[in-house]
Design a protein around this nucleic acid. Sequence first.
DNA 1: GTCTATAGACGGATAGAC
DNA 2: GTCTATCCGTCTATAGAC
Lengths: 237, 237
Amino acid sequence: MSDASRASVPDTRDRLLDAAEALFVEHGFEGTSTRMITGAARANLAAVNYHFGSKDALVQEVFRRRLAELNRQRLAALDRLEAEASGAPVRPSGILGAFFGTALQLAADTEHGGHTFMRLLGRTNTEPNAFIRQFLAEEYAGVLGRFLPALYRALPDVPREEILWRFHFMMGAMSYAIAGTDGLQLFAGRFDDADPARLIPRLMSFLLGGLRAPLAEFGGFRDERAGEGDEGGLAAA
Amino acid sequence: MSDASRASVPDTRDRLLDAAEALFVEHGFEGTSTRMITGAARANLAAVNYHFGSKDALVQEVFRRRLAELNRQRLAALDRLEAEASGAPVRPSGILGAFFGTALQLAADTEHGGHTFMRLLGRTNTEPNAFIRQFLAEEYAGVLGRFLPALYRALPDVPREEILWRFHFMMGAMSYAIAGTDGLQLFAGRFDDADPARLIPRLMSFLLGGLRAPLAEFGGFRDERAGEGDEGGLAAA
DNA sequence: GTCTATAGACGGATAGAC
DNA sequence: GTCTATCCGTCTATAGAC
């Protein structure tokens, strides 16, 4: 069925995957019908079921074909860094570049659908479809199992729990970064400079600053808002 | 019809809004049917149309009732800080506390649905339903019009374009921060300490670190991954 | 592999009794 | 305000001709 590198002409199956990818990011999974997909792919209504068996199986294949390649590149980049470091911990900037930079480079590819896919991926991280969540967790287990330990070694003084949270925050920042390069967000129309080429350094310095921020051991920033009683109720007093 | 502070018993209308809020965050707008909503609210199938006119109008009201209060609190917090500063720029940590801290406090309220709503809001930021995007942009115009200038004054040496992007990144980090306190994300099962009370200082120090990170004027972090030709292609060489 | 036709369930919305 | 009954469109999936 599926030898990996069978670079054939864009047949019906591939057109379906491309069309689905683009429609999912625009309308979500539930908001995209097989009729919309087959219509955009100039294929017959029955084609989705013939090629994939069901709509859910198509959804899964949309992610599988891209994520496999993205995570392979991420691991290859980390391998390279660790080889160069020859035993020493890899620098945090290098680790972030290997994980987030690789993803942003895929997101910068507008010609082969990489940009569309990365928008879809960012959106899906907050869409808790039961079966897609399970699938993504499995696809990510390998990379997280390599990148998290690399960060633990690079930042031995930061509690692992904190690194975990900050990694999570960084994924959120990246997700919005990619979505923000289109006219998608609240800030649409406010960006004068949405040049995708500048996005990578922009995001990278933000992520590094956040990752290396001093820890907050105290009660937080509450004190700056203190001095009021029950002002936070629902009804206007 | 709608005097603001009519604190009555939870009638059908409110039960519909609460049920819709919870179902939307779980299944999305398209994935939630009016039958699911009226079923969960123990109301009649026709109730949605009677009370709101349409499903779309219900969606809009779910956001309106919460966002109005959240943004009122955000502006009140900023007012307080600016009054204390009496003309001087407000410190960045204060501005972030007023915007993101206020939101996280709403997200920490699990009893009155604030947590559910903030998860929904974070999810919706990446769901580009045409009419909801328009609606959110209008609801946010007021707060952004106050908070962005406050940040411009607080960080006069940082280009405004950069502050805009970093604000955007911060919203992504906050969105994932809130989603991550549930069993929603890729990291589910990896967090040993998901105590919501610690989330605010965790996120705040990350955001501040990112906001104040040194600017990247050079080509970015590419150099760390350079030295390879066309390795990034789709097929394995 | 591609097509037409259709089954069978579910979607939002409404009419009209109470 | 709440209910039942129902209209009518769309959904996924499949059967079967070509």
